[in-house]
């Protein structure tokens, strides 16, 4: 289903979920959970948004049943560690490429995905100051490097 306009801010988190469907279903599950939780705060009243959120909930319930033998899904404290480690791995990969002067689409995408996964961590509670900083940095780096490459400039 196309994401309704009032829920556009969760679109990229849902895309990340799709991209991780087979690669890491636990990450896909929590991306959708974040999207659900955030979507309900954004707009669960208008018929289009409600219909979308009901379908998303159906999807989440099916996923939870399919992943019932994954501790990361049945216990959110384990899920928290799983998503955080994954986000950090993405961040460190991109950061290493950046510091080595290797600028390319993959590392831009990794910075951006890391920032989205740090958003997802809010499902488990308030973000730590460190994660807030990482998220801001990763999001800024993704935009900065993307713009540099688009304009033919070498990022610093």
């Amino acid at each position: 289903m196309a994401v309704p306009v009032p829920l556009r801010s969760i679109q990229h988190h849902l895309r990340t979920a799709q991209e991780h469907e087979t690669r890491d279903p636990v990450v896909a599950y929590y991306c959708r959970l974040y999207a659900m939780q955030t979507g309900m705060k954004l707009d669960s009243k208008t018929p289009e948004c409600r219909k979308f959120l009901v379908k998303l909930m159906d999807q989440l319930e099916v996923m939870k049943k399919e992943l019932c033998d994954h501790e990361s899904v049945t216990q959110e404290i384990v899920g928290n560690a799983h998503v955080e480690n994954y986000a950090l791995k993405m961040f460190l990969y991109a950061d290493n490429e950046d510091r080595s002067g290797r600028f390319h689409k993959n590392m831009i995408k990794s910075f951006y995905t890391a920032s989205l996964l740090l958003d997802v961590l809010s499902v488990f509670g308030e973000l730590s100051d460190e994660n807030i900083q990482h998220r801001k940095y990763a999001r800024w780096k993704a935009t900065y490097i993307h713009n540099c490459l688009k304009n033919g400039e070498t990022p610093q």
Binding site: L33, K45, R50, L60, K64, E76
Partner: peptide
Amino acid sequence: TGSVGASVASAEQDELSQRLAKLRDQI
């Protein structure tokens, strides 16, 4: 019609909140 519509929407929202809470083992 307005109050019935609002009541139905509110019930649907509660159902969604309940399903989310159940999903997260909060109920």
